[in-house]
């Protein structure tokens, strides 16, 4: 399902920060961006799954990527941002340190991802890009969120998809 993997022409990405690093994800997967609100905790969930919130009637899980990838400090205040994603017909919210910009990138601007040095496993990366002398790491968000590592989708769901 990584239709983003090959960038045909200009494609828009939403950039966000985790700790000191700049990341970007395909803007078409973004449903909305909202502030962090208190969650309902879920038993037996790993610490990076903060719990669930009510998103206009849908019960949506919230994942803190800062805890998951051990970057930055997981503090929650009125400036904490949740990016609500729509992935494989499911809705998931991810907590990040901040969202910065929407950038348009094409294939030529893309460099292959490094095998080390970023918090994400290179499987979940599309590549690197430089904008305004800043390095941006492009995340394959579909792949990341639906990965077993995140444990958001039970295995049976993925088989049926």
């Amino acid at each position: 399902m990584s239709e983003v993997a090959v960038l045909q022409k200009d494609q828009e990405f939403l950039t966000f920060t985790l700790g000191e690093e700049n990341y970007a994800l395909d803007i078409l997967t973004v449903k909305e961006i909202r502030g962090y609100e208190s969650v309902t905790k879920i038993a037996n969930a790993p610490p990076f799954i903060k719990g669930v919130i009510n998103l206009r009637g849908d019960i949506v899980p919230i994942v803190d990527l800062r805890i998951k990838f051990n970057v930055g400090t997981a503090t929650y205040d009125e400036f904490t941002i949740v990016i609500v994603l729509h992935i494989h017909n499911r809705i998931v919210g991810i907590v990040v340190d901040g969202v910065s910009d929407v950038v348009s990138l094409n294939k030529d601007q893309l460099r292959p991802p490094p095998n080390f040095g970023v918090a994400f496993d290179s499987r979940y990366l599309l590549g690197l890009a430089t904008i305004n002398e800043q390095m941006i790491i492009l995340v394959d968000i579909n792949e990341l969120i639906s990965s077993d590592e995140m444990g958001l989708f039970s295995t049976s769901d993925k088989i049926s998809e």
Binding site: V39, A43, N54, I59, I91, S154
Partner: peptide, 27 residues
């Protein structure tokens, strides 16, 4: 009753979730 499995997965001991009058989620 709202489904927890729709966007997450089944949780042991929890049948579903609901939305309380103040908009918060209760299991």
């Amino acid at each position: 009753i709202k489904s927890l499995e729709q966007h997450y997965k089944r949780v042991q001991g929890v049948a579903g979730a609901t939305i309380m009058g103040d908009g918060s989620v209760a299991l």
